[in-house]
């Protein structure tokens, strides 16, 4: 559905941020994208809905291309982006206005707006905060508002650009549970992160290194092959535990489940 075709990107010639990046993401997938600070992850996210244009190559959503100005508005409607900083994506002065902002831009009629706003706020459990002002919200609440404001636009793909990295553990788990619930309902999720335990819960993982795709496969494969050793990323707890116990198979995000099922019984 979302296709990167030989994408190159740079700000200054000779200093590529992304080089020959190609991959395709299918409808309904949950994909984690990982890489160290400065590996090109955020650039990748911005290319996904045409905030940036590839210098070479093409980014396509179905038959739409971000290169085509007429397609751009449709792409932005279908690919929602949640950014890292809870503060710097709040455009308006209340939760309600924030959710409505995108709908107004899409020229959604007024009656339909109120239906969509209600649904979106319910999906992130913010319906009690419609009139709240941004500087009175916690980081987790701000990010959930950001998610609602994008959900209301009815996207097919949600891209989270390190959306959990500035949150406390509580805010982080709120955002993650919203993410997984949306995926269960059929949403395509792209989760850019450097929390490795979040990676284990994805169906597929892309590892980005120096602007190129260094790995594309399932999380257990990534951790089994030892690809990670060359990257500024550590192993999730479950993987470290697996190594310590000399287990070779049955890696699970829920390490307690992993231990229970493999506990040697006599």
């Amino acid at each position: 559905m979302l296709i990167f075709d030989q994408v190159h990107y740079y700000y200054r010639k000779g200093q590529p941020l992304l080089a020959s990046v190609s991959f395709e993401i299918q409808e309904g997938e949950f994909v984690a994208i990982v890489g160290g600070n400065g590996s090109g992850k955020s650039t990748l996210a911005r290319l996904m809905n045409g905030l940036l244009q590839p210098r070479e190559g093409e980014v396509r959503l179905g038959h739409l291309s971000t290169r085509n100005t007429d397609d751009l508005i449709k792409i932005r409607e279908q690919v929602g982006l949640v950014f890292q900083s809870p503060d710097d994506q709040f455009i308006t002065t209340s939760v309600l206005d924030e959710v409505v902002f995108g709908l107004e831009n899409l020229r959604v009629p007024r009656e339909e707006m109120s239906v969509r706003v209600k649904q979106a706020l319910r999906a992130v459990q913010m319906e009690d905060y419609a009139e709240a002002m941004p500087h009175k919200l916690s980081g987790g609440q701000k990010q959930r508002t950001a998610i609602a404001s994008i959900l209301a636009m009815r996207p097919r793909i949600l891209v989270f650009d390190e959306a959990t990295s500035m949150l406390d553990p509580q805010g982080r788990s709120q955002v993650l549970s919203v993410m997984h619930e949306l995926h269960r309902q059929g949403m395509t999720i792209i989760h850019i992160t450097h929390h490795m335990d979040e990676v284990l819960e994805a169906e597929r993982v892309l590892l980005l290194n120096g602007g190129a795709i260094a790995f594309d496969g399932t999380p257990p494969e990534l951790f089994r092959t030892g690809t990670l050793a060359d990257h500024p990323l550590d192993q999730p707890f479950a993987v470290r535990l697996q190594h310590a116990l000399g287990l070779n198979t049955g890696l699970k995000a829920d390490w307690k489940e992993m231990i229970r099922t493999q506990w040697p019984t006599s």
């Binding site: 600070n37 990295s165 450097h194 929390h195 500024p232 550590d234």
Partner: peptide, 10 residues
């Protein structure tokens, strides 16, 4: 260490 990747954090 908030916002740093795991190895930078360590």
């Amino acid at each position: 260490t908030a916002g740093l990747d795991p190895l930078s954090r360590q």
